[in-house]
């Protein structure tokens, strides 16, 4: 077991650094497959399983336990461990943790199934694996989020590192950091820009605009005390219209136009889009 874990972890360390770049380059990080690796080929089965961390070796035990509902895939939607290696004839006991809502265990080839999903902690389901090979299974309600597992029966591909996973779990974390970083940058960018503007205004040769400079001079001449803001002059109307001489005829025509539009759209939406379409609740 430890022989397996060692190299896996260190390779992941490398991936961790690369993942950020890969994601930035177009989100290709999730493609990491077993191509070119020795060991067990899961054929992409674990590509979206965040808690997959190599094949855990449990050979030499007559009974092996796999937990149903361990942390992973964004919640308690994972099998723990996701992949185990057992000897032929071993009984695997699936034991429910009670976390992450209702789960079940269904073989990909329909060879076994625990039945309808249940949540109850302590629920168990057993299956004895006689034939050598890979037996893939999943949780029906959480298949789409990556709640998948596999039992490797026998010695096939043993000794070598069992690849086939992807940095799914890492990419989540990396993506998060990337997001936080870009957020920070995005929030800071107008600040930096403004600081730059200010710096330029303060010392740079371009300085304030012609207009502002004139005003500055004017203000400087008059103003000795603390700076005071001076408001723009009040706009004088061309003509003054009082209440009794004002008929908002344009407004009336606009709102009546709106009214007609609303009534037409209402009729269309209610009688064509709503009542005119497919089954409706009638009881």
């Amino acid at each position: 077991m430890s022989e397996d874990a060692g190299p896996t972890v260190s390779r992941r360390g490398l991936l961790r650094g690369a993942a950020g770049t890969a994601i930035a380059a177009g989100g290709v990080a999730a493609v990491g497959t077993a191509a070119g690796q020795s060991g067990v080929d899961f054929d992409g089965w674990f590509s979206d399983v965040s808690n997959f961390d190599g094949v855990v070796d449990r050979r030499g035990q007559g009974e092996v336990t796999v937990e149903v509902g361990v942390e992973g895939n964004g919640d308690y939607w994972a099998f723990g461990p996701a992949a185990v290696r057992v000897d032929p004839g071993t009984t695997v006991v699936f034991e429910w943790t009670g976390e992450g809502s209702a789960h079940n265990v269904v073989a990909e080839n329909d060879g076994y199934s625990s039945g309808d999903p249940v949540r109850e902690a302590g629920t168990t389901f057993e299956h004895t694996f006689e034939e050598t090979g890979i037996s893939k299974y999943y949780c029906d309600p959480h298949l789409a989020v990556g709640m998948k597992g596999a039992i490797v029966v026998g010695d096939m591909g043993a000794g070598a590192d069992a690849g086939g996973g992807s940095p799914g779990g890492i990419s989540l974390s990396e993506g998060a950091w990337l997001l936080v970083g870009s957020l920070g940058l995005a929030v800071a960018s107008p600040l930096l820009f403004a600081a730059f503007l200010r710096y330029r205004r303060g010392g740079g040769p371009s300085g304030p605009s012609e207009e502002t400079r004139e005003q500055l001079q004017r203000v400087d001449e008059v103003d000795q005390g603390p700076p005071r803001a001076e408001e723009a002059p009040v706009e004088k109307p061309e003509t003054t219209i009082e209440h009794d001489e004002y008929d908002p005829s344009g407004t009336l025509s606009l709102v009546l136009g709106y009214l007609v539009l609303v009534v037409l759209l209402w009729v269309f939406m209610y009688f064509v889009e709503f009542l005119g379409r497919g089954p409706t609740v009638i009881g």
């Binding site: 089954p279 609740v281 009881g283």
Partner: peptide, 26 residues
């Protein structure tokens, strides 16, 4: 049921009950 008017919330503790006529094959 996308594209129809059969639409409800499903709230734990409550049973949503809706009657619908399915007239056509679909």
């Amino acid at each position: 049921i996308a594209g129809t008017n059969v639409n409800t919330m499903v709230i734990p503790g409550q049973v949503a009950e809706l009657t619908v006529d399915f007239d056509e094959t679909a």
